[in-house]
Amino acid sequence: MSSQTTQFTRQPTDTGSAPEALQQRSRAQRSRNRVRTTALFVIFFAVFIVVWHLATVGFDDGGLAPTPGATWDRLLEMLSDAFLLDGPNNVGIFYHLLASIQRVLLGFGLAALIAVPLGLLLGTSRVINDGLDPFIQVLRPVSPLAWLPLGLALLRDSQMTAIFVIFMAAIWPILISTIDGVRRVNPLFLDLARSLETDTKTRVLKVLLPATLPAIVIGLRTALSTAWLVIVAAEMIVGGRGMGHFVWNEWNALNTPSIVVAIVIIGGVGFLLDRSIAQLQRLVPKS
């Protein structure tokens, strides 16, 4: 600011130490809260294990109910055999996980490559959008699994079919979020771009895309978590390697503790995938 506003000067105060004390107090408050949260988590976890144990022990079902003890043993076993590769029927959990992640990332990546440019186009052009919107509205609510038999019939390849199903699961959230994002771009940004006589390429890449990026990242995040939900079900059907196939296989072997371990792993990996894309969200400046 220029010198004209400096006529109001603040009186010096001798409370220079006050902010320091306040900071200390808030820091102490934060660490107290963290201790409480951790303690609560430990208590809940213990209660959960006890209830689980009581609910499964002595349950007369021929040993189908997974007890905490059996599950723990199975977990250790699976972790020690994680990298096992001994014939098609004896594959470590790591390779199942890897196969699932690969399919998800491939299908998701393809969906993003198509949905982002398409969304930018549909968001800008009212005419094209109005023509395509009925297709989007009807196809979007269809469970991606409904596409699976069609994929098998046309692609004749289980791996490709799984990726295709993930693609169908991931494309809608990205497409819809991108279209919505384009519509919400400050119209004055576009006026500015026009008044600078920018060409279409500059307008799309330097103004529209960066301004839509926050919405695109939200779409990507939704799409990735949807894809991770769908992959387990898809793999139960297409077989091969993968977490879904593993779960179904263990059910066929009546090995329920493995299923519990697999559920925890699927949840943990899903959480990590979501976290990593949330990091992307932080990098994008809000408009």
């Binding site: 004055l188 500015l192 301004a211 809000k286 408009s287």
Partner: peptide, 19 residues
């Protein structure tokens, strides 16, 4: 008939690209 660089506009709200 179209916006032009010969006309410099200052908008009512700031129209600065936030990134």
């Amino acid at each position: 008939d179209a916006p032009s660089r010969e006309l410099g506009i200052v908008f009512q709200q700031h129209v600065l690209l936030p990134w």
